[in-house]
Amino acid sequence: MDRENVSATLTVAVPATRVFAVLADPTTHSVIDGTGWVQQAADRSPLTEVGQIFRMDMYHPNHPHGEYQVANQVQVLDPPRAIGWLTGQEKDDGHLEFGGWIWRYDLVPLGPSETEVTLTYDWSAVPQFIREYLQFPPFGPEHLTNSLHHLAEIATATSRARTPDG
C-alpha cells in the first residue's frame, strides 16, 4: 500500500460547533470509537489547546496486557473546523513516547444545521521499528465509517437535548 492514511466522510444534520464540542469532550470518545478498543477517558477535561495531553483507557485482545492506556497529544485545535491528536504511551519513567499516528477530524459547515465531517487516520510518521511489529492501519476500513456514524448519533442526540422543543 502506497498510501499512509485512510479517511472517511459523512454529512451530519448537526451544526459544526456541536460536532466539534462532542469531539473536544474525551468522555464521548469511547462511544464514538468504531472498534470497541477505547474504554473510557482517564482525563475528562475538554480539549482546549494544542499540546494538551489526554489519556484514554483501552482494551485490545492482541495487546500483551489486554488493558492498557494511551496518552494523546492535541496537534490540531481549530474550533469548529478541525481537531486532531497524536497517540502514544506513557513509559514507566513518566516520559511520553508517541508512535507517529494521528487521528484528525475536519469539519466543513454546509449551512447552519449541517456539517461534512472527514475522519483521517494518518500513519505516515510512524518509524520503521514500529512498522516491524504493528500493521498499519491496525483496523479495517469500516472502523472510520462506524466512528463517523457513532459521532453523528451522539451529536444529534446532544443537539436535540439542548433545544427547548427537542
Rank of each mutant, 00 (worst) to 15 (best):
N146Y: 14
A13M: 15
Q75C: 06
W37S: 13
V12P: 14
T163V: 09
E4S: 03
F129Q: 14
T48C: 07
Y68I: 03
R44C: 06
Q69S: 07
K91R: 09
P26E: 15
P137Y: 00
D78Q: 14
T115Y: 10
P80T: 06
P46T: 14
G84F: 02
D92Q: 07
A155F: 08
P46I: 06
H60A: 11
R81Q: 05
D122H: 04
H149R: 14
G34I: 09
G94R: 13
H65D: 13
L96A: 07
E49T: 04
E114D: 07
G51C: 08
M1Q: 00
P15E: 01
Y105C: 03
S7M: 13
N62Q: 12
A16N: 12
I102R: 15
G140L: 11
F20T: 00
A152P: 08
T35A: 10
G140E: 14
T28L: 10
T120G: 09
W101Y: 12
T35C: 04
E153K: 11
P61S: 11
P127W: 00
D2R: 00
H60E: 05
V14Y: 11
V22A: 00
R81E: 05
P61W: 06
T9S: 15
L148I: 12
P138H: 02
D106Q: 15
D2G: 01
L86Y: 12
F139S: 03
T163N: 06
G84C: 03
L10Y: 11
I102W: 09
Y133N: 12
Q52C: 07
A157W: 12
D106T: 13
A157C: 09
M56H: 02
Q135F: 05
G36E: 10
D78C: 02
V50L: 11
V19D: 03
Y105Q: 08
I53K: 09
G166Y: 04
H65K: 09
H95K: 06
P61I: 07
T156P: 04
V76A: 00
Y121R: 00
V70H: 06
L86N: 12
A41V: 04
I102Y: 10
S124H: 13
P80C: 02
G34H: 10
G99T: 12
F136T: 02
G111M: 10
G84A: 04
V126E: 05
W85C: 02
E4H: 05
P79E: 05
D92H: 10
L119V: 04
T145Q: 14
M58A: 02
A21C: 03
D93K: 08
L96H: 11
V126I: 12
G94W: 01
D57F: 00
V14C: 13
S7C: 09
V6S: 06
E90N: 11
L47D: 03
T87L: 05
Q128E: 15
S159Q: 15
I32D: 03
M56C: 04
V12Q: 13
G34D: 04
E90R: 15
G99P: 03
P112Y: 07
D43S: 09
F136K: 05
E132Q: 07
A13C: 13
L96V: 07
V70E: 11
L107M: 12
G111D: 09
V74L: 04
T48F: 01
R3P: 05
N72H: 10
S45Q: 15
L23Y: 03
W103E: 08
